[in-house]
């Protein structure tokens, strides 16, 4: 599990190094955020398909669950996404990202800033669009981008609709469940 996380983290770092290098040569913040988002969503998709889908559904060797360590199972794709996001913060403060929702299972993944709320509402109301803005946090200015996060497969919807802590239980496949927020410090 850890190896996978490390490998994904490494790929990320390479992607980040490249994108930040471009940023310094005058690529706009929005473009950098877009590129980071592409890496993130591709990684997530690959993990879901190549690891989770294959081992749990196709080959039925393992299951994926929230308490994957106790259950000796795979981490859920959304957990994997957050682990890597935290691993990135262990290494750099050049950018940060999070997977958030207006109706999260864990309250700490709800909007924490005005811009997050605005962005999450925007991507929920206008599917297909992303949201860009600037905000000041802890005395520093950040460029923040919010991208829609969809319920791609039935498993996402089922878990969210049945989880005891979920505030929303009427999600359906294809619907926007939340958003990915990417932040880049502007100095």
């Amino acid at each position: 599990m850890k190896q996978i996380a490390v490998a994904v983290g490494f790929l990320w770092s390479v992607g980040v190094a490249m994108t930040t290098a471009w940023a310094s040569e005058g690529v706009s913040y929005a473009k950098v955020a877009d590129m980071l988002y592409q890496v993130m969503s591709a990684n997530r998709e690959v993990y879901t398909r190549v690891v989770v889908q294959r081992l749990t559904v196709d080959e039925k060797i393992l299951t994926a669950s929230e308490h994957f360590e106790d259950d000796a199972s795979l981490p859920l794709p959304s957990q994997m996404f957050r682990f890597v996001a935290e691993a990135v913060l262990d290494n750099t403060e050049d950018f940060s990202y999070s997977l958030l929702s207006l109706h999260p299972i864990n309250k700490k993944n709800g909007p924490a800033t005005d811009l997050e709320r605005q962005g999450l509402e925007h991507v929920a109301d206008s599917p297909g669009e992303s949201f860009y803005g600037e905000e000041e946090l802890g005395g520093e200015r950040y460029f923040s981008a919010v991208y829609p996060d969809y319920a791609v497969v039935e498993a996402c919807v089922q878990c969210h609709n049945n989880h005891k802590d979920s505030p929303r239980r009427d999600l359906s496949v294809g619907e926007v469940m939340g958003g990915v927020v990417i932040r880049i410090p502007m100095d």
């Binding site: 996001a85 691993a87 262990d90 940060s96 999070s98 924490a112 946090l137 520093e140 932040r183």
Partner: peptide
């Protein structure tokens, strides 16, 4: 964890 709170979205808690 430190890494969770290093995310600038947690600035309010700092």
């Amino acid at each position: 964890s430190r890494k969770r709170f290093r995310n600038p979205r947690m600035a309010e808690y700092w």
